[in-house]
Design a protein around this nucleic acid. Structure first.
Length: 405
RNA sequence: GGCCCCGUCGUCUAGUGGUUAGGAUAUCUGGUUCUCAUCCAGAAGAUCGCGGGUUCGAAUCCCGCCGGGGUCACCA
């Protein structure tokens, strides 16, 4: 509504505002080369005093022809102002300085551009990070020179890295938001997480939908201290948001995350898989590892049995016998979850085995995975044919293994 | 170094003169006929950065110190 938005297309606008300052005697051409400025700066450093450009301001302000930087002629004074997040703030005149408004290439600095843009675009709230707190008095000075009303200021605390010794930044290896999205983090979980870093609504609610945040979020309740980025908390929050999704919603969102082997599977089947997987999914990229065995026969993994606390005690002949019993019992089932539960219970009695032994064994034989959803539901979804085939395969594995011995 | 901001369980936080300092997460334990996860129950974890005040009483108000962060560009 207030375009153009590209800075290169707004140069005339900045020019106009800059001219206003020049006309009022509040801006002047920088007479020094950057080497000279560097020298001043070093001198100040040597004498351990803060560097102020205005200490080197010429008496007769040089006219500006656009080939040199244009500097603001500041009016040093103490400021008291109010920040929605930080509260009442104040500084002395020593922080006010003559900063560059327009660079020698004709482009405005951020310090000048944002003030002009905010005014032109009728911005009500300026919300920015703590790194701008130190330059705010200079902006206040410029608002006055330009006779602008200052917008409402809100300064947000930084998010610190996990160690807590630096503001979080990509330069130091922080993950891009887009990387999280690619890994299958939900935008609403990311927003909930960031919002919770420094804000809460005063109740004990931790999980907020976007809608709730829009209704409840309030700058007044944002804390002033920086918060550490705790990825474990984000993981939990993302899982919680995933669990809150409807099955259809979830299905639409995970389209790109299925394992290769799921390509030929029907949507119907995938939805059933999701139903069993939803509550253990923390981010979508985990989907293949969690679900692959639903779509393909994984190779026999002997360690699942040989390293299992309970199963490794069994003789091979016992294991095989249990598998055979299971197979024939399951073959009589109609493979609804209810019927399977019945059959499995009967099987416990007829084999007089503990669930730890029997169920673990069946689960491993039919999935070849270290973890899976509850047994009966998993079997039901896999179907009779697949289950018996896989159990048979597991039996054969043991038989050939014992033959070679 | 100057200036500014901040300082409650490991982490995110509630809390604005009187609370057994609350919740969440993470960790550990038990339960949910198997695993993982969820869910439920429980445990442990904070001398409220430290030291002085003010007050009958301080995490809460004041001062000093310490610690952390930010900023001091013709970058945003």
């Amino acid at each position: 509504a207030y375009g153009p938005y590209r800075q290169s297309e707004r140069l005339e606008i900045y020019q106009k505002w800059a001219q206003k300052l020049v006309d009022n005697g509040r801006a002047y051409a920088d007479p020094y080369t950057s080497e000279e400025v560097q020298k001043f700066r070093k001198q100040a450093q040597k004498s351990k005093t803060p560097f102020l450009y205005r200490n080197h301001r010429p008496d007769n302000l040089p006219k500006w022809d656009g080939t040199t930087p244009l500097r603001f002629k500041s009016d040093p004074k103490a400021y008291k102002w109010s920040d929605v997040v930080m509260g009442e703030l104040s500084t002395g005149p020593e922080v006010i300085d003559d900063f560059v408004l327009v660079k020698s290439d004709g482009f405005p600095t951020y310090n000048f551009a944002h003030i002009v843009d905010d005014a032109e675009m009728k911005i009500s709230h300026v919300i920015r990070g703590q790194e701008f707190l130190a330059s705010t008095p200079n902006y206040l000075n410029l608002y006055e020179a330009l006779e602008l009303q200052q917008p409402i200021l809100a300064t947000m605390p930084h998010i610190l890295n996990e160690a807590g010794n630096k503001k979080l930044s990509k330069r130091d290896g922080a993950k891009d938001v887009l990387d999280y999205i690619k890994d299958g983090y939900l935008p609403e979980a990311m927003i909930n997480f960031i919002a919770s870093l420094g804000w809460n609504d005063g109740t004990e609610q931790e999980i907020f939908t976007i809608k709730e945040l829009m209704a409840k979020f309030n700058l007044n309740r944002v804390g002033r201290g920086g918060a550490h980025f705790d990825e474990k908390r984000l993981l939990w929050l993302n899982g919680a948001h995933i669990r809150g999704l409807s099955l259809d919603d979830l299905f639409n969102k995970v389209t790109d995350y299925w394992p290769q082997e799921a390509k030929t599977a029907s949507d119907e089947y995938k939805i059933q898989v999701l139903k069993l997987t939803q509550e253990r999914l923390k981010f979508f990229k985990e989907l293949p590892n969690l679900t692959r065995f639903f779509f393909t026969n994984l190779p026999i993994k002997p360690s699942l049995i040989s390293e299992n606390k309970h199963l490794k005690k069994l003789e091979i002949s016992e294991t095989v016998s249990l598998l055979e019993h299971s197979k024939s019992a399951l073959e009589k089932s109609d493979f609804t979850a209810e019927d399977l539960i019945q059959r499995l219970n009967t099987l416990l009695e007829t084999t007089s085995q503990k669930p730890v032994i029997l169920f673990s064994l069946i689960r491993i034989a039919t999935t070849q995975a270290p973890a899976s959803p509850p047994l009966a539901e998993t079997l039901a979804l896999l179907g009779k044919e697949t289950c018996t085939e896989r159990i048979t395969k597991q039996i054969k594995y043991f038989q050939t293994a014992s033959d070679t011995i």
